[in-house]
């Protein structure tokens, strides 16, 4: 494996305790994400897509095996500087406006409020969301909220964006527009994008595809 990878899993296995039962979410996965990658993770519900993203993003750690971030350093400092998340729905902080939500990871990184605000404004503008900058999440439509979430993920200029079913609640046209904006924002950068999705249309736009089935991964292309 190349040392230039952003993240690599080596024989990573993840099990959970559900009551008296031990459930295996991932079976011995080995994979890497490189700069600029566009990866779609496909699979039915319960196949381990989210767990895979959690291990890649350092939210969770493998029960067996290894998760490494050769370029980013230790697991504790991954977010928000190197890794960003986009969730399926309602991933905005209710008590912050759209602009404040986008600025949040920047402030957490140590930027001043005014610096973060300026970057957030630009990020919202790149997604056509200038007019909703001062609105609260409850005042946004589903599509607008999801675009704000994506803008937040992009604004911090991370190296790796992990998106877990980001268009799961959106209709096809809206989903398409969202990804158009996302790809445009990432164009020319070496940011890697890993998307867990059911949407075949989204999957075909990604350069690589991993299929998950009962916790096992198959590289499709």
């Amino acid at each position: 494996m190349s040392d230039a990878s952003y993240v690599r899993l080596i024989d990573a296995r993840k099990t959970y305790l559900r009551g008296p039962r031990r459930v295996t979410a991932l079976e011995s996965i080995t994979c890497s994400v490189f700069p600029g990658d566009r990866i779609a993770v496909l699979g039915p519900s319960g196949s381990g897509k989210s767990t895979l993203l959690h291990l890649l993003g350092g939210v969770d750690s493998p029960s067996e095996g290894v998760a490494q971030w050769p370029t980013f350093g230790p697991r504790d400092g991954l977010r928000p500087r190197f890794v960003s998340y986009v969730f399926q729905t309602k991933s905005l902080v209710d008590s912050l406006t759209a602009e404040e939500n986008v600025a949040l990871p920047l402030v957490l990184m140590g930027m001043t409020q005014s610096e973060a605000q300026a970057i957030a404004e630009a990020a919202l503008a790149s997604f056509g969301l200038e007019e909703v900058a001062q609105k609260l999440p409850e005042e946004l439509s589903g599509g607008q909220a999801q675009r704000v979430a994506v803008a937040r993920a992009v604004a911090a200029r991370p190296r790796l964006i992990l998106a877990d079913e980001p268009t799961g609640q959106l209709d096809h046209p809206t989903a398409g527009r969202l990804f158009d904006a996302l790809f445009a924002a990432l164009d020319g950068t070496d940011t890697a994008l890993v998307v867990a999705t059911h949407d075949a249309a989204i999957a075909t736009r990604m350069a690589r595809r991993w299929a998950m089935h009962y916790g096992m991964m198959e590289v499709l292309s």
Binding site: V59, D76, R79, P80, R81, V83, S84, Y85, F87, S91, L92, V93, D94, S95, L104, P105, L108, M109, R152, A156
Partner: peptide
Amino acid sequence: RSFALLEAVGASRRQ
């Protein structure tokens, strides 16, 4: 949920 979001977005324990 809000606190989980904050941590997911990248808030450290101190933050």
